[in-house]
Design a protein around this nucleic acid. Sequence first.
RNA 1: GUCCUCGUAGCUUAGUGGAUAAAGCAACUGCCUUCUAAGCAGUAGACCACAGGUUCGAAUCCUGUCGAGGACGCCA
Length: 630
Amino acid sequence: MDMALSQKIKDLIREEAAILWPEINIPPFDITEPPNPEFGDLSTPLPLTLSKMLGQKPMDIADKIKDKISKKTIEHVKEITVTSPGYINFNIDFAKLSKHLFHKVLTQKESFGTSKETKGRVIIEHTSVNPNKAAHVGHLRNACLGDSLSRIMASNGWTIEIQNYIDNTGAQVADILVAMETLPDRQGRKKFDYFCWDIYTKIQHFYETDENLKNRREEILHLLEEGNNEIANKALEITNKIVDCHLQTLSPFGIYYNLLVWESDIIKANLWPAVFEDLKAKKLITLAKSGEQEGAYVVEFGIEERQNKIMVKSNGNATYTAKDLAYQLWKFGLTPIDFAYYLRGIQNNGLPLLTTPSGTKLMDNSTPATRKFSPTTKVINVIDIRQSYPQEVIKSILERLGFKEAASNYVHLKYDVVRLSLAALKELGIKPEEDKESYAMSGREGIGVKIDDLFKKTGAKIKKTNPDLLPETLDSIVAGTIRYYILKNRPEKEVVFDFDEALRTDGNTGVYLQYAYARCHNILQKVPNWDYQASKLVAPTEISLESAKIIKLLEKYPEVLALAAEEFDPSLLTDYAFELANNFAKFYEKNPVLQANEETKNFRLQLVASVKQILNNTLSILGIIPLEKI
RNA sequence: GUCCUCGUAGCUUAGUGGAUAAAGCAACUGCCUUCUAAGCAGUAGACCACAGGUUCGAAUCCUGUCGAGGACGCCA
């Protein structure tokens, strides 16, 4: 496997430095692009770092390293220089590098940059929206992150299974049942999840004044946990309808799943009691005999009583954390129990969606299905940052149970929430109660930008400026614009949603990337007889600054993809995609392709074809559809 | 109260120990008889919240202060 140029340089320097100074450990260092192209194409400040460790002048160290590595041939490096105060710089032989690189990109196509190494199976859980109301942009952030991460992991050699957890037994579902019994049916022509959004909000106000309703909720909650009764069946019907709405909402964004796991099935399968026994046997859980937690089973975490985590309430019911722990153990195959699986349907991506039994309520004839099995080596849960503490609890219990492997491969992909700008709040017709810069969304209070509404709104705006777009193209642009807006933020950063910002279609946006791709396609399409195989691999002697920059970027792609998988961070790819598209736009202005002389034209066609390929690969992983014509 | 995350240009952000702090939006100036102007080029705009410290070198690491958000439920 031949590696990226910067990696090759890095390895060589490390090797030679270790020989030069065996008395020290060479610290980690970076190969970066210098701020000024005069200094070269790649560069490292390692001599500056080593200076203190060795007690020598940085320039002397740099010279010594340079002398050593100059004796070896580094493929595609033309010249090595040293500049003050102690940088080693590398000049790339672009003619040779481009020839090599274009060949690789244009023959490996989609698989360029992906890992050939097989890395086992990873289960990625994302979306997991409570099935009692319409999904909003906060949920969309979760789904986009999870979906793009799945594609990133798949590209890096992982076998993926995407699960969507349906919490269909909690109070939020009981609320809908109470609301349906209490409030007049005003669904009318509203989408079912929108209707539920409204009544869920409404019923909250009734609880404040009506004690009987509260009691009724408790009663229903109990019936839901019990299962096999009229109320539980009604709940299954409702939650299934809402899950369908959610799947429909996310489908235009290209977001799909392999398996739906329903909480009611986790309860029915007695997953928790099995884990409970294990915890008791290993003496990790104790019955609190006195104090505030009397009668509850707790796992001890701190010295104080309040730091203990309750797993089984004093009324005998398992807490959410307990059920979640059991679910996570099951993912790793560490429980003796498994579920029955059914085919819920074929998704718009052509792949089947499986479900545990509760997800079959709407189907006339449920088909039993087999879940493809291979041992799970990694579990990634996309959950917002507010759940960091309970997630740490689960990880810690995995470890204490003796599942060290599982614990270290248990990943909480945390992301901060989406809040609303003042303008967005006003646009929803809600008056702010206090003067703040941003406002939390709340399903209970009915405050939130619903995904379907955002999709429609974005579509209307784009159609206004471009009335002739094909409906399919329009949908792809809308989905791409929204996905990019969501994904470009670093996951741990809070997003303050604003309509003006989300609906933009110029500058650093999804359309910009799709536009760059379309321009590539447009050029190539005007030379119908050209294709890479037939072309001669000759690079011109003079390579423009714009071309050089693009070649460097193309070369970096595999590294970026691998880093995104390592950091679980799709935003690294949005940054990369924008930089590539941006540099292609600059190239486009100054480097005419079709009018150039034969040699240059051929070179530039290869470059354009390569950019098109890498844009295609990056966009696909980000879940944005590349468009040949806009 | 304890703990966690964040604070970079008017706005949204990138940069987490190295060279002149980098983009997009908004503002202003140019560029379509030449591969798609949803584009490009340019001007202006930041002593990186504040105060100390460590270092040859700090937006980046440490301490403190201020500001924003969050976690610490027999909720899910």
